[in-house]
Design a binder for these strands. Structure first.
Length: 650
DNA sequence: CTAGGGTTAG
């Protein structure tokens, strides 16, 4: 703070003198660069152009170029670069790193090809950029080319080359390259899921720098062994290697995955100089541990500390809003993303589509989808599943057809969306067609998720025998999802026998889960088999199974309110219950019909909505002339004028 | 200037 103040004073007096002397100008500019203060640089340049004062000072210009790239001001960097008289290989490399960071492979390749002279770093940067943008094949061919042109690969090069192998799942080539690394006494990395082998190599290495430790730690993380990361973190400290920001970010991630969110919070608070990645990791950690409010607060702290959020931060925070189904928070983020230049970013846009869909606003979601300059399968999936979950089956299927027309390749998730749209609209034949297209047209193997959709598709309209045949023909052992799907279709059909089968299997897999007992008990009650209802109750009592608490979230005037079932803790408790009782009475009278024009009421529930509440909401929507959008653990319910978009199937 | 950390869809 103090240093910046001093710099500003120096700047003021320099500009006041109106001097254009080269030496003080250069000194001042360098200081601005050292302080990472682009604003001061701009201020200085608005008075005097660097070209007119320092036309041949390549060193100074390179430093400035690097600062621009570091701060994400690529346009400024490019402008300066174009004007530079004495470009050296460093200047070119800085531009390569800019394009590499942004994933602009076109400009990256073009710049690389235009370079008059290249060095090892030029190759390393370009290879890393290509590999990072899913152009691993090209990255590898450049890896080969650099050697034919007489450049010796360094550890940087090998890391990228091995990354390329792991991306292409080419273990054979990876091992070959690894052999070369061993031969040239360089250091390896952690790839292709062979984490134990990597550890063996790692232990064999004498001198290990911080990058190596970090690679090993993240290797464990990527291979789903977070507990090992923490061990390694401690070992690293014992070995006297000082952890850096990268280490801490990995370890933070590991803590979340093993559920030690409080431990992570402690480590996070200890870090003095946090960078954007640290903040993002922590925000994501909160979000994944169902602490969305903390995640949101942390994001605001991050902004208050002047740490610049990037596309990863924005997409994470947008997904926090989606989890909360908080449209106002989501819109705030959307508005913040625009001036930061992330509006049309692939990650952010896909998260926005998901957020709007999860708030029941598919029109807004579609607007985001429509303006995206580049879409990948994730963007399409977000939009298709958004439609499917909101009961807009036709839109979902139409969009899928467009995807096929545009020669995009769908993935497993796309087809889950498509099949669930079919089952909701009762299009059995169409669903069957899409199901067989998974293997026949797209050359993929249907997963249990797809089979579950099919059981739903067949079972709902009562084709229970076909659904059971499908379960018997599964290529692998039926999992929890399959049996709970069978239970849910058996419930719709009042098929107690099948429901019993499914519930039995479910309790074998997860004995503590309450859902199956409750569904079965309700089915017995509907059939008047009260002795069975009593049996279910005593069973649940014996096993000490208790129903998970039901939560609801509702957003009123920019604030999210959370309720537990039979909650009496809200500050406006009396008023709420008075209104509830008034509604109950009104509903008993019923019979109104007026246009819908007010803001919808949005409700989020952690469990599946029960039959009574569903009925209640239908009445309330009619009575209050308000659209109610309720998102439960399963899908979306748009209640309008006494009808629900789920068509009473859920 | 180049390697290692965080992100989106069911």
């Amino acid at each position: 703070m103090k240093a910046n103040q001093k710099l500003r004073e120096a700047m003021d007096s320099f500009l006041a003198r109106g001097s254009t002397a080269a030496e003080p100008y250069a000194r001042l500019l360098l200081e601005c660069i050292r302080a990472n203060d682009v604003e001061q640089v701009k201020r200085l340049q608005s008075h005097i152009d660097i070209q007119s004062v320092q036309p041949n000072n390549t060193y100074l210009q390179n430093r400035l170029l690097h600062l621009y790239v570091k701060c994400g001001k690529t346009d400024d960097a490019l402008q300066l670069f174009d004007k530079m008289a004495g470009k050296d290989v460093f200047s070119w490399n800085v531009m390569l790193s800019a394009y590499s960071k942004m994933g602009e492979t076109g400009s990256l390749r073009a710049t690389f090809n235009r370079m008059p002279v290249r060095d090892c770093v030029s190759y390393n940067t370009t290879i890393a950029g290509l590999v990072g943008s899913e152009c691993s094949v090209d990255g590898l061919s450049l890896f080969v080319r650099m050697q034919t042109e007489g450049f010796e690969p360094s550890e940087y090069t090998y890391v990228s080359a091995l990354n390329a192998c792991s991306q292409l799942l080419d273990l054979r080539l990876g091992k070959q390259i690894h052999g070369r690394i061993v031969a040239s006494c360089l250091k390896g990395n952690v790839f292709c899921g062979q984490v134990d082998q990597a550890r063996w190599l790692f232990d064999g290495l004498g001198d290990k720098n911080v990058v190596l430790w970090n690679s090993m730690i993240s290797g464990y993380l990527k291979n789903g062994r977070p507990e090992k990361c923490l061990d390694l973190f401690l070992e690293m400290k014992v070995a006297g290697v000082k952890p850096d920001l990268v280490t801490v970010s990995s370890v933070l991630g590991a803590n979340f995955r093993s559920g030690f969110i409080d431990e992570a919070t402690r480590i996070f608070k200890e870090i003095k100089e946090k960078d954007g990645v640290c903040w993002t990791t922590m925000i994501v950690g909160y979000a994944q541990n169902n602490r969305e409010e903390d995640a949101w607060m942390l994001f605001n702290e991050m902004l208050a500390e002047n740490v610049k959020p990037d596309k990863y931060t924005f997409s994470s925070v947008v997904s926090v809003c989606a989890r909360l189904a908080s449209l106002v928070h989501g819109k705030v983020i959307h508005c913040k993303a625009i001036p930061n230049g992330f509006e049309s970013d692939l990650l952010v846009s896909s998260a926005l589509i998901d957020m709007y869909s999860k708030c029941g606003e598919t029109l807004d979601a579609r607007k985001v989808f429509q303006v995206m300059p580049i879409r990948n399968v994730v963007s399409w999936n977000a939009m298709i599943t958004g439609y499917a979950q909101n009961g807009q089956d036709q839109e979902a299927l139409e969009l899928y057809e467009t995807l096929l027309q545009e020669k995009m390749k769908p993935d497993n998730i796309t087809l889950v969306g498509v099949l669930s749209a079919c089952s909701r609209s009762g299009s059995v034949e169409l669903g069957k067609k899409y199901f067989s297209s998974i293997s026949e047209l797209h050359g993929m193997k249907p997963t249990l998720d797809h089979y579950s959709c099919m059981i739903n598709l067949l079972g709902r309209p009562g084709r229970m025998n076909e659904a059971l045949d499908l379960i018997n023909s599964l290529p692998e052992k039926p999992n929890y999802l399959i049996w709970s799907t069978l239970l849910s279709v058996a419930r719709v059909n009042g098929d107690i026998e099948r429901a019993e089968t499914a519930a039995k299997r479910l309790s074998e897999i997860d004995p503590l889960e309450t859902g199956p007992y409750i569904i079965l008990s309700n089915m017995y009650a509907s059939a008047g088999r009260w002795e069975k209802v009593a049996l279910m109750r005593s069973l649940m009592k014996d096993k000490k199974i208790r129903k998970a608490p039901a939560y609801s979230w509702i957003e009123i005037d920019y604030k999210v309110h959370k309720f537990v079932s039979d909650d009496r803790t809200h500050s406006q408790n009396e008023k709420i219950y008075r209104e509830l009782h008034r509604l109950m009475k009104e509903i008993q009278k019923a019979g109104l019909s007026k246009p819908q024009d007010r803001v919808p009421i949005r409700i989020l529930k952690n469990l599946r909505v029960c039959k009574d509440c569903h009925m209640f909401m239908k009445f309330v929507s009619k009575l209050l002339e308000r659209c109610i959008i309720l998102r439960d653990s399963n899908l979306f319910h748009h209640f309008v004028d006494g009808e629900c978009s789920c068509k009473d199937y859920w």
